[in-house]
Structures are given as C-alpha cells and as structure tokens.
Computed example of a mutant assay.
Amino acid sequence: MSMIDRIRRRRMISRQNRAIDRAMQSAPTQSMRDEIAFFSQRQPS
C-alpha cells in the first residue's frame, strides 16, 4: 500500500468518524444512538 493510499484511507476513516459523531449528537433517542453505534461498529475497516 502506498503512502498516498494510507493518507487517503486515514482521511476517509476520520471523515466517517466525524459523520458518525454528528449522527450520534443529533439522534433524538438513546435507542437511535445505540443503533448508530451498532452499525458503525459493523463497518468493514
């Protein structure tokens, strides 16, 4: 894996993490947050 690929991958992962954080913050209920957490853990890395 080249250096550029690693940087691109890390940037994509941090973008996904920020999106997950935003979804968690805006989730109206605890069960919705639990579901977001569940799906975010099942993502292929």
Rank of each mutant, 00 (worst) to 15 (best):
M1Q: 02
M1A: 12
S2F: 01
S2R: 03
M3R: 05
M3A: 08
I4C: 01
D5Q: 05
D5F: 05
D5T: 12
D5M: 02
D5G: 07
R6N: 05
R6G: 05
R6Y: 06
I7P: 00
I7R: 13
R9V: 02
R9S: 10
R10L: 15
R10D: 13
R11C: 00
R11M: 08
I13F: 13
I13G: 00
S14Y: 06
R15M: 12
R15K: 14
Q16I: 10
Q16P: 01
N17T: 10
R18F: 13
R18L: 15
R18H: 12
A19T: 05
A19M: 13
A19W: 00
I20A: 09
D21E: 13
D21P: 00
D21N: 13
D21A: 15
D21H: 11
R22F: 05
R22H: 12
R22T: 13
A23Q: 14
A23L: 15
A23C: 10
A23Y: 09
M24R: 06
M24W: 09
S26W: 04
A27T: 06
A27F: 00
P28L: 13
T29E: 01
T29G: 01
T29I: 02
Q30A: 07
Q30Y: 01
S31Q: 14
S31C: 06
M32H: 07
M32R: 09
R33V: 03
R33H: 01
R33M: 02
R33G: 03
R33F: 04
D34E: 15
D34R: 09
E35K: 14
A37K: 14
A37F: 10
F38V: 09
F38N: 02
F38S: 12
F38I: 04
F39S: 05
Q41Y: 04
Q41V: 00
Q41K: 15
Q41H: 09
R42N: 11
Q43Y: 06
P44T: 15
P44M: 14
S45A: 10
